[in-house]
Design a protein around this nucleic acid. Structure first.
Length: 417
RNA sequence: GUGGCCAUAGUUCAGUUGGUUAGAAUGCCAGGUUGUGGCCCUGGAUGUCGUGGGUUCGAGUCCCACUGGCCACCCCA
């Protein structure tokens, strides 16, 4: 084989696209119900947009971005996540000037150069939403409820919602210092990654999956015990709202997400149906991001979810297997003289809004019947010279295996009933 | 980026201690029914055995490298 798709990229084939389209339509429906409107941003941006927003020291920026220089020597990057682009568009188009709260959603491919494995691709797809302009806990709860509602639409209700508060510019630096001094005491016993993070991003050390690290840091102070008054009451409000929405959650004081811009609420939705890459969706509040990117200080919160991972669960649970696109009628020609008529009629039916198909490969009647069956057509119309003379045809219902002779003039009417 | 396993018809896979023209199932095509699908029967077509090198009289089989896939680490959607 001479040409192959790039490592970590996948073709979504005709056998799968009906399921994708259906999932996308459900996602859109829920977003619309929550009054979020779609935004479409370019797939690539200036590299510095991501470096600035996601954080220079994060794994995403440090080693996973698809970055290249174009012919004008500008450094561009295929977007590794959605929020940065949305906030850039929000600022650039002054979206905040026409209303205090902007609620948008997106469905888009994302790109990260990681080693592919189950549930992880280099080009993958996310849907996500951003509510820009509200600092209130009510919006945090709305966004979380919306994410959960999408999964509920697919009867996925056993996933786990983990939430945390990562503090703000007032309380987080103090906590970081406290944690850092504690971590330095045991630094040499920690994994190399964690040792590096003590200085770069100490909170990530607590989020390590290394068993030894977990044991050593078991009694470390948690951010949830060091929040300032404002962050603490915000967190309490989010939790009580979730409870009032009948959404169960577990507080995970060690949850730190891989993007530096989060403040206060951070959350993650995981599923045990997925294997090692078990995060279905993640998100959080980013009250400082808009000003960091040069806009007016505007609080915001959002989430993003992986479509392939949702798809994995849908496939595993054998949901949505009966979606398919099929012709209502297949026009089969019994002899060569009637073949031209079937083609003409097929085109005519299509213009009348009926999904029709015919044989364009000059096949035998038997082969045409097989084709109609393979295409899962509801009806077959068999016509030959004799029928055309009488202006009739044999209409066969493939589902109930019955056939009858009908006048050609009545065909469209019968099919649209 | 690191590691383990893997790579043979369209697909899923078999292929003996290295030995002649590389198989099965399924799918595809055709016929059985010269105007009728699904089930059944009969027949047919299809492989650079991932790529490149090496060992050997001889390699799908052994060795090396590369590429790709799967899974895990890491990280995350």
């Amino acid at each position: 084989m001479t040409f192959k798709s790039i490592r970590g990229t996948k073709d979504i084939l005709p056998s799968e696209t009906p399921r994708w389209q259906y999932v996308e339509s459900v996602v859109r429906t829920v977003f619309h119900r929550f009054n979020y409107k779609e935004i479409r941003t370019p797939v690539f941006e200036q590299t510095s947009l991501f470096a600035r927003s996601i954080g220079e020291l994060t794994d995403i920026v440090g080693k996973e971005m698809y970055t290249f220089t174009d012919r004008s020597d500008d450094s561009l990057t295929l977007k590794p996540e959605g929020t940065a682009s949305v906030i850039r568009a929000f600022i650039q188009n002054n979206l905040g000037e026409s209303q205090p709260l902007v609620k948008v959603y997106y469905l888009s491919p994302m790109f990260r150069q990681e080693r592919p494995q189950a549930g992880r691709l280099r080009q993958f797809h996310q849907f996500g939403a951003e509510a820009i302009g509200s600092s209130f806990a009510e919006t945090d709860a709305e966004v979380i409820a919306m994410a959960i509602e999408i999964y509920r639409q697919f009867s996925i209700v056993n996933c786990e919602l983990k939430i945390n508060s990562v503090g703000c510019e007032k309380c987080r630096p103090l906590y970081k210092k406290t944690l850092q001094t504690e971590l330095r005491k045991i630094a040499l016993q920690l994994s190399p990654d964690s040792q590096r993070r003590i200085e770069e991003n100490p909170m990530r050390v607590l989020d390590s999956k290394n068993e030894n690290d977990i044991r050593l840091t078991a009694s470390m102070p948690l951010i949830t015990d060091h929040l300032c008054e404002e962050c603490s009451s915000h967190f309490e409000k989010v939790k009580s709202l979730l409870t009032s929405f009948h959404i169960s959650y577990i507080v995970d004081g060690r949850l730190v997400r891989g993007l530096d811009y989060y403040t206060k609420t951070a959350f993650e939705l995981t599923s045990n149906e997925l294997g090692s890459q078990d995060a279905l969706a993640g998100g959080g509040r980013y009250d400082l991001l808009t000003q960091e990117l040069g806009g007016k200080p505007t609080p915001g919160i959002g989430f993003a979810a992986g479509i392939e991972r949702l798809m994995m669960i849908i496939e595993k649970k054998k949901l949505l297997n009966d979606l398919d696109i099929h012709p209502t009628i297949f026009l089969a020609a019994a002899d060569t003289t009637s073949r031209a008529w079937t083609l003409e009629k097929t085109i005519a039916l299509r213009t009348q809004g009926i999904a029709a198909e015919a044989d364009f490969l000059n096949r035998s009647l038997k082969a045409q019947m097989r084709e109609a069956d393979r295409q899962n057509a509801a009806f077959v119309l068999v016509v030959g010279a004799e029928e055309l003379n009488k202006q009739t045809a044999v209409l066969k219902n493939l589902r109930v295996k019955e056939e009858r002779e009908i006048p050609l003039a009545a065909l469209a009417k019968i099919l649209t009933e």
